[in-house]
């Protein structure tokens, strides 16, 4: 019998009931992610990549199929699959440290004492270079800083799987590059398994071990699965004109703009 991957999606499909009858958002999705891999999901907006991430997170129920994580079926949300939300979703009435502590206190309530949990919060804030802002509230932070805290909250609970939903989509280019470098460092040091949604081709190729390209909805599925064979650590300037980077980038662009161009553009 074939050994199952660390994260295995088997025949996932999602159908929503709407006023005009059932709407098939996703169909026949099979995806395997190995331990320690960073997989980028890319596709045009509306193709259902967020829905797929929500299914893995357990926030949306799959209509068909099953998900295995480390050999166990997962079908409800839980802190073993931490999510970094696009809008960071920090609670505005809590400080930076309290936002991270909400997650840490919940997950390690039984296993760590109060002081150890406090240390874990501060350690993770240091990892994202936000320890100096621990006492601030989210409203006092820039967008990039908020997302650093969002990442700290997600990794602090030592999840088995880290899910990132267009984490840098709302940030300016310089801040985004900065956070991308940080995610690469964190992934190297922590060995996290990551599934990340993006619509930025450069981000996908720079960060990911594999770029999984989705076809356009309705009934979207996985169109292509491209391995990015670039040595790590990757530095954006050094790899920018290597053939491996350029080749992968071209492949993704060709998929997105030749084979599955945006539905709106095709009609035009």
């Amino acid at each position: 019998m074939k050994q199952r991957s660390y994260l295995a999606l088997e025949g996932i499909g999602v159908t929503f009931a709407t006023r005009n009858g059932p709407f098939v958002a996703l169909q026949n999705i099979d995806l395997n992610v190995e331990r320690g891999e960073l997989v980028a999901l890319i596709g045009h907006s509306g193709c259902g990549k967020s829905t797929l991430l929500n299914v893995i997170a357990g926030l949306t129920k799959a209509s068909t199929g099953v998900i295995f994580l480390d050999g166990q079926v997962v079908d409800a949300p839980g802190p073993d699959r931490a999510v970094v939300f696009q809008d960071h979703s920090l609670l505005p009435w809590l400080t930076v440290a309290e936002n991270v502590a909400l997650a840490v206190d919940k997950v390690f309530a039984a296993t760590l004492n109060r002081a150890a949990r406090r240390d874990l919060v501060m350690h993770n804030l240091e990892l994202v270079h936000m320890a100096g802002n621990a006492a601030k509230r989210p409203a006092e932070l820039s967008g990039g800083m908020k997302q650093r805290v969002g990442i700290a909250r997600a990794i602090a609970v030592k999840p088995r799987l880290l899910l990132m939903d267009e984490p840098f989509g709302a940030l300016d280019a310089l801040t985004r590059a900065n956070l991308q470098d940080m995610v690469m460092e964190l992934q190297a040091s922590q060995g996290s398994t990551v599934v990340m949604i993006t619509h930025d081709v450069d981000e996908a190729v720079l960060l990911a071990d594999r770029v999984v390209m989705m076809t356009n909805g309705p009934a979207a599925t996985i169109g292509e699965d491209l391995a990015v064979k670039l040595a790590r650590p990757r530095h954006r300037l050094e790899i920018a004109d290597t053939s491996g980077y350029v080749g992968a980038r071209t492949d993704v662009l060709r998929f997105l703009y030749e084979r599955f161009s945006h539905p709106g553009e095709k009609a035009a």
Partner: peptide, 10 residues
């Protein structure tokens, strides 16, 4: 967003 945070943290 807040409800999703609560769900993910169970």
């Amino acid at each position: 967003a807040y409800r999703n945070v609560a769900k993910v943290l169970a």
